[in-house]
């Protein structure tokens, strides 16, 4: 089987398009590269969706955490503590079993035990908590001159937040938020290793990598392939977030622009 054929058969295997059966014997490097790459679709899906939705949750929680009203502050603090204080791996397991029990009572929860939704919710809540902590820190360090200047111009309430506080918060938080993004994409590999089952052998990159390691009894090929994909993905994230960083800092004189410090994180 030529490599082009393999790409046709397996490039979209992880979302159920293409050959139904996974390769069973005579594994080629091409098959491993294609299938593990196909699994990356899920890693990107989980990471991207969780970041996109978690961003808004994080902003709201960060504001809640900075609020003077204890009815807003306490729940926000508790939420951040719960999700930052416990391992994501355990959160996945626990959430899966909670969804199972809920499903028994309310049919509404039927889709929640599938990874595409259930694991996404966990990742959403998890990144929400970590990002909220980052945004909270940024809110605390907004120069007070900027807020006073906004007051002097007669800005208040929503427009002051929308036009002054929020952009400054993002600008200050962005380097740390980039790390959080890298960190979240790496964490998506845990999904199929926790409670969530793989349907019809559709899994993420690590699911296929360990499939090949199991079948070939040789971890020295699939895992480095996986590592290669993730280094690429990390570079893409750094590039994308770097562009946003440039835009956020474009009004500053060149020497005052904060340089992106890259501190990719590890499992949570």
């Amino acid at each position: 089987m030529s490599c082009v054929q393999t790409i046709q058969d397996y490039a979209l295997r992880s979302i159920g398009i293409g050959e139904r059966l996974l390769p069973r014997s005579d594994f080629t490097v091409c098959e491993q590269v294609v299938l593990i790459g196909s699994g990356m679709i899920w890693n990107v899906y989980f990471g991207f969706m969780a970041l996109a939705t978690g961003f808004f949750l994080a902003t709201a929680v960060a504001l809640g955490k900075g609020s003077a009203n204890p009815w807003l502050r306490k729940p926000a603090e508790l939420y951040v503590f719960l999700f930052r204080g416990s391992p994501l791996f355990i959160q996945f397991f626990f959430a899966y079993f909670v969804f199972l029990n809920l499903k028994r009572v309310y049919p509404f929860f039927d889709p929640f035990t599938a990874a595409w939704l259930g694991a996404l919710i966990v990742l959403f809540l998890n990144t929400g908590a970590y990002s909220a902590q980052i945004f909270h820190g940024a809110l605390q360090s907004i120069p007070k001159g900027e807020v006073e200047a906004a007051d002097a111009y007669g800005l208040s309430g929503w427009s002051r937040f929308r036009r002054i506080i929020w952009p400054t918060m993002l600008r200050l938080a962005w380097p740390a938020y980039t790390n959080e993004a890298i960190f979240l994409f790496h964490a998506t590999t845990l999904v199929y290793f926790s409670g969530f089952p793989a349907w019809q052998q559709r899994g993420d990159a690590l699911y296929y990598a360990s499939y090949f390691a199991d079948k070939t009894f040789n971890p020295f090929v699939p895992y480095p392939i996986l590592a290669g994909y993730f280094i690429l993905l990390t570079l893409v994230i750094i590039g994308g977030f770097g562009l946003v960083n440039r835009r956020l800092n474009r009004h500053l004189p060149a020497n005052a622009r904060s340089k992106m410090k890259l501190r990719p994180n590890l499992i949570r």
Binding site: F230, I231, T234, L266
Partner: peptide, 16 residues
């Protein structure tokens, strides 16, 4: 080490 998901390292390193 920092560019790769650690879980991949864990699965790989022990056997290696």
């Amino acid at each position: 080490v920092r560019g790769v998901p650690d879980i991949a390292f864990f699965l790989f390193f022990v056997i290696a």
